[in-house]
Computed example of a mutant assay.
Amino acid sequence: MSAAAIRAAMPPEPPADSPPAEKPPRCAMCRGRMEVTRREPGPNGSQRLTFLCPKCQFTKTKTIGDPMDAGRHRPRKGK
Rank of each mutant, 00 (worst) to 15 (best):
L49D: 02
A3P: 05
M34F: 03
P19H: 13
C30T: 03
P41L: 01
R38W: 00
P41E: 05
H73R: 14
C27H: 00
C27F: 03
Q57W: 02
G32N: 14
E35V: 01
A5I: 04
D66V: 02
R74G: 10
V36S: 03
T50W: 02
A9L: 10
C56P: 08
M29E: 11
D17P: 08
L49G: 00
D69E: 12
G42Y: 08
P11C: 08
P14E: 13
S46W: 02
R38S: 06
K55C: 03
G45C: 11
P67Y: 08
A9T: 10
C56V: 15
G78Q: 05
K60I: 09
R39I: 09
T37E: 02
R33P: 06
P75D: 06
H73Y: 13
K79Y: 10
K60N: 11
C56S: 14
K79Q: 13
H73F: 13
R74C: 08
E13P: 08
K23D: 15
D69A: 14
K60D: 10
P67H: 08
R72Q: 10
D17R: 07
E35R: 00
P25Q: 04
N44P: 00
D69G: 07
N44A: 10
A9Q: 11
T37G: 05
P15K: 13
E22D: 14
R38G: 03
H73P: 07
D17C: 06
P25M: 03
Q57R: 15
G78R: 03
A4E: 15
S46L: 06
R48G: 01
H73A: 15
P15H: 05
S2C: 00
P54S: 06
R72E: 15
I64A: 11
V36K: 04
C30L: 08
P19Y: 06
K60G: 01
C56L: 10
P54A: 07
S2H: 05
Q47W: 08
K79I: 11
K62P: 00
M29D: 12
T59R: 15
R39C: 12
R26A: 07
C27R: 02
R48K: 12
P54T: 04
K77P: 06
G42L: 09
P54R: 14
E35S: 00
P43K: 08
G78F: 03
R38V: 03
F58W: 07
P20R: 01
A70H: 07
D17F: 08
T37S: 05
K62Y: 09
G32P: 00
G32A: 15
S18W: 02
T63G: 06
N44D: 13
E22V: 07
P67G: 04
